[in-house]
Write a protein that binds this DNA or RNA. Structure first.
Lengths: 229, 229
DNA sequence: ATTAACCTATCAATCATTCAGTAGAATGAT
DNA sequence: ATCATTCTACTGAATGATTGATAGGTTAAT
């Protein structure tokens, strides 16, 4: 997020050290407004006029901060996955190394859902708009999307290697299926009905144990088997 | 599909009995073109100009067949779910009454996927555009969507009553999860990689048996338990 | 001769974008 | 401390292109 461009703490003749550049603020406000509108109305019904109104500017002023509408949208979309990716990775990194893979998957699901449904509009704006956004806007998104996909792939592979996923299971289908189901949650999620953690729990046991009737299964308490080698 | 309006076989002064009205054909072609564009480009980038070009008409001519763009889009969207709903119901009705619920679910999944990925653009146009389409276009869709949801709800409830789904499973989450995952398949499905039937099979056993390692599970052959009372 | 099916021409509205300007803050020179 | 200059952040007006939509005319089949 604070990576590119020297930005606030530039070296040469930037006297306002601790202060944030004024334009940085409105730039951010424009992006926020765009994420909001993209998420609520979709790209089809998000005009620069709408964004300018939301921020309290003239449409022409947006061009001081962004070279084009496409560039603006692109940045919102990029932030979208970047945020999910970071959230999920951070959540997994925070786990103890002894955590089972089942627990890891559960945490990853919860983090993805939380990022999608609670943390602002960027993530959901991305997920909801990406499928039908013009190709030229998608291009810059593809690389980081692939990275995120690989991250999940790796997680599931490790789980399988550790014996926590049956060896005959097609991981790529599991991944697509799981991510798809999570992404679709923007369409039905209602925070007053069920918490994200509860949903993540249920999805996890559904994925691992299935919904079929259990036969004997000696009720070993479940997740604390710590199968690492 | 053939419900409203007397249509082709009207009573009074309609001489061409077996023949299809000329306008019916082009009307259909317009709808087809709309479904195609909606699916490929999305509503944002589907203009009446595009549709007219695709069909070989002038944009003004579209207004002979439809009162407005909204009405045209609405009809495409409506046909969308209508088709899935019918496909799934037909597939289930074709099963022998002795079929297990697991088999029923498998067939329902296959039918939904097939309708979504193989049978023309209407279904996928609906699924992909609905989330971000303006509200006034969604209204007429909601009723039939709810019906289709109820249909799945009923199927899963029956399965649970019959003992083929564990009693403690939250069916509404299963349904939302399953439908979401299926609907997302438009984003990744590749017919050359895996057939729809194969995918349906895998999803089904994933949902019922889970991906976790199997313990003893006496390999009873599976689906032929016929639990109908 | 009537009607069904489509066309030409045109409409106002909205779209993203450009450009010339400007108020006010920051800067530098005195 | 004062004044002139430069730069930042924005405005106002206008651009051409495209949008959905309307009105009136034309053709072809019955």
């Amino acid at each position: 997020m604070r990576s590119k461009e020297g930005g606030t703490t530039t070296s040469k003749q930037d006297k306002r050290v601790g202060k944030i550049r004024r334009s940085e603020q409105t730039r951010r406000r424009i992006l926020d407004a765009a994420a909001l509108w993209l998420n609520k109305k979709g790209l089809a019904e998000t005009s620069l006029q709408d964004l300018a109104d939301e921020v309290g500017l003239q449409t022409a002023s947006l061009y001081y901060h962004f070279p084009s509408k496409d560039a603006l949208i692109e940045e919102v979309l990029h932030k979208g996955i970047e945020i999910v990716y970071e959230d999920v990775r951070r959540a997994l990194d925070a786990l103890e190394p002894s955590a089972s893979y089942r627990e890891r998957v559960r945490v990853a699901i919860a983090a993805h859902l939380s990022s999608l449904l609670e943390h602002g509009d960027y993530t959901s704006a991305n997920i909801r708009n990406f499928p039908l956004v013009p190709e030229n806007l998608r291009e810059k998104n593809l690389s980081i999307r692939r990275q995120y996909g690989d991250y999940w792939r790796q997680l599931l592979q490790d789980a399988q290697k550790a014996g926590e996923v049956a060896p005959n299971v097609d991981l790529s289908l599991v991944r697509l299926f799981l991510v798809g189901a999570m992404n679709w949650s923007t369409e039905w999620f209602n925070p007053r009905k069920k918490s994200i953690d509860a949903i993540a729990d249920m999805i996890c046991s559904m994925i691992f144990d299935g919904i079929g009737p259990k036969e004997q299964r000696p009720s070993d308490g479940g997740q604390k088997r710590v199968t690492r080698r």
